[in-house]
């Protein structure tokens, strides 16, 4: 499939759900148009023959980077919870967890 594949409002609604973005109907339309325009432009790479090309995932080749298994003092709970939108009993408080896949 090529980059030029057109994106539809249905795709955009699904993506907004995945990205947890509450988009208004006209935001959906605007985004659909803008993403479609971009993907149109990005279709330039469909012209390239990339079958033999290895994907590049690392700008600088490193491997086997480790830390030793030693405790370092962490964060102060009160300082962290003070910055939380809602906290209770030393923990972060959230509304009921429903309709979430886990």
């Amino acid at each position: 499939m090529g980059v030029s594949e057109r994106i539809t409002a249905v795709d955009v609604v699904k993506v907004a759900k995945l990205a947890r973005l509450d988009l208004s109907p006209d935001a959906i339309d605007r985004t659909t148009a803008q993403l479609a325009g971009m993907l149109e432009h990005f279709a330039d790479i469909d012209a390239l023959d990339l079958d033999a090309v290895q994907p590049m995932t690392q700008p600088y080749p490193l491997q086997n980077v480790f830390r030793e298994d030693v405790i370092v003092a962490g964060l102060d709970r009160d300082e962290v919870l003070a910055a939380a939108p809602s906290a209770e009993d030393g923990r972060f408080r959230v509304p009921p967890i429903v309709g979430i896949d886990a």
Binding site: A83, A84, P85, P95, V98
Partner: peptide
């Protein structure tokens, strides 16, 4: 940036809608 540990939270009836409202 999900409104759970720091930063903005837009309150909502459940966590999932809180996510979407906060991020939007």
């Amino acid at each position: 940036y999900d409104g759970v540990r720091y930063g903005l939270r837009v309150d909502s009836s459940d966590t999932n809608s809180m996510y979407s409202a906060t991020r939007a």
